[in-house]
Design a protein around this nucleic acid. Structure first.
Lengths: 221, 221
DNA sequence: TTTTAGGATACTGTATACAGTATTCAGATT
DNA sequence: AATCTGAATACTGTATACAGTATCCTAAAA
C-alpha cells in the first residue's frame, strides 16, 4: 500500500504555534515592542513550553525574531543596508527563475502565469496589505513555474524575513501600487526567449521595488 | 557598558550536537544506512533527549536528514533532478555575487581573492575530500567578498545540503581536480567589470561542476 | 505455507520538573 | 540624591516523565 504520503502529514504542535505566530506578525498583532516569552505564550495557548520553544527558536534561526537581552524574543529589526542586501538576494533568486523560464519557453506555463497575474491584480478597494500580498502571490507564481524547489525555498525564506522585518511598516508609506501592473510585461519579455534580457528585466523590476521601499522607510524617518 | 556582545556567545548543547553530527556526516561516520534515534544518540552523548531532538529537527528542516518511516532519522537522498536544481540555485546565488563584485571593482578585494585561491589550491597529495573543501573555500571567499549576508547564508545552506546528500560519494568518482584551477580566471573576468560576463562565467563554471558531478553519479549506477 | 490478529517494543511528541543565570528592584551606605 | 549590594524574580536551558502511535514479532487460524 503506497498511500502513506496521505496520512503522513506530521502536524506537530510546534508547527501550529509557528503558523499562529507568523499570522499574528502579519496581522500586526505582534509589534516590535512586544516581548515573546515562552512561558507566557505557552500559558496563553494552553500548551506546554516545549513546542512553543521550538517554534520561537525556528523563527529566530530564520531571522524573524532575535532574543532580547532581557530574555524573551523580539521582532528583528532591519537596517537599510540589510534591506538592500535582501533585495539583491531577491534579484538573484527571481532573476534565475526568469532565466529558466525564458530558456524553457513553455507556452502553457506562461499562459498560466498571465492568468494568475490578472487574477491577483484584480482587486476592488485594495489596502496596502492587499497589494503586498498580491505582489507576493504573483512573484511566487513565477518561482513555482520555474520549478526549482531550492529557489522556491529561498524565495519563501526571503519573503518570510520581509514579513518579519515589518516591511509593511515601510511599504504602507510608499506608493506600492506603482510597482504592480508591470508584471504582464515581465511575462512578455520571458516569452521572447532571451535569458539575459529576462534576468535584466526582473532585476530592474525588483530594483524599482527596492526604491519604492526606501522611499517608504525614509518618509518615516 | 557596551561589551555585552563579547559575553553573549550563547552556546547551547543543541549547537554542539548539531556540529558533531555535521562533522560525523562529513567524515563519513554516519552513512546512508544509519538510523539516528534520539534516545540512542542522547545516551551516547550522555545528555538528555531534548537538545538532541533539537539538533535533529534542525538538520531535518535544512534538508540534511529526513525521518525514516520506521522512526529515527536518515540521511536524505538526492535525485538527479534535485542535483540539477541544486546547481541551478548555486548559479543564481554565486552568479549574483559575481555581478556585485564586477560592478564594485574593488581592487583590494580582488587581490585578496587571488591570494585565497592560490593558497587553497596549493595542496600536496590532496585527497578528493581535500579538493571538495578547497573548492568550497574558494567559492565561499567570493561570496564573502560580495558582502551580502543573505546570499552568504543561502550559499551555506546549499553547500550544507550538498554535504548531506553525500555529494562526496559521487564526487569521489569524478575527476574533480579538473574543475579546480579555473578560479583565477573567474577573478580576471570579474576584474574586467562586465557584470553580465561575470555572471555568465560563473554560471558556466558551475555548470561544468554539475557535469562532473553527474559523471560521478552515473559511474556508480 | 500463508495470512491474520494481538500484544510487546520502540519511537516520537508533549508535559513537567529542576537548575542555573541574568535582570530587576529594594534597601543600605555615602 | 546617587550608588552600591544582595536577594527576589523571571527566564532560559536541560533533564525526566508520560502518553500515544506505528512497527514488528509471535502465534494461531486458514
Amino acid at each position: 500500500m503506497a498511500l502513506r504520503g496521505i496520512t503522513t502529514q506530521r502536524r506537530r504542535l510546534a508547527d501550529e504555534v509557528y503558523d499562529q505566530l507568523v499570522k499574528a506578525i502579519m496581522d500586526r498583532e505582534i509589534g516590535p515592542d512586544d516581548r515573546l516569552v515562552q512561558e507566557k505564550l505557552a500559558a496563553e495557548l494552553e500548551i506546554s513550553r516545549t513546542p512553543v520553544r521550538e517554534a520561537l527558536l525556528r523563527l529566530e534561526k530564520e531571522g524573524v525574531l532575535h532574543l532580547a537581552n532581557s530574555g524573551g524574543f523580539r521582532l528583528a529589526k532591519i537596517s537599510e543596508d540589510e534591506t538592500r542586501e535582501l533585495y539583491q538576494a531577491r534579484a538573484a533568486i527571481e532573476g534565475q527563475a526568469a532565466r529558466i523560464l525564458a530558456a524553457r519557453q513553455d507556452k502553457t506555463e506562461l499562459a498560466g502565469l498571465r492568468r494568475i497575474i490578472e487574477q491577483a491584480e484584480d482587486m476592488k478597494n485594495p489596502s496596502t496589505q492587499d497589494y503586498f500580498i498580491a505582489n507576493r502571490t504573483i512573484h511566487r507564481a513565477f518561482m513555482e513555474a520555474a520549478g526549482n524547489r531550492f529557489l522556491l525555498e529561498m524565495f519563501d525564506g526571503i519573503w518570510g524575513r520581509a514579513m518579519a522585518f515589518h516591511l509593511f511598516a515601510a511599504i504602507e508609506n510608499a506608493d506600492i501600487s506603482k510597482s504592480l501592473g508591470n508584471h504582464t510585461e515581465l511575462v512578455d519579455i520571458i516569452a521572447q526567449g532571451d535569458r539575459g534580457a529576462a534576468l535584466e528585466a526582473f532585476t530592474a523590476h525588483i530594483q524599482e521595488g527596492f526604491e519604492l521601499h526606501l522611499d517608504g522607510i525614509r518618509s518615516i524617518a
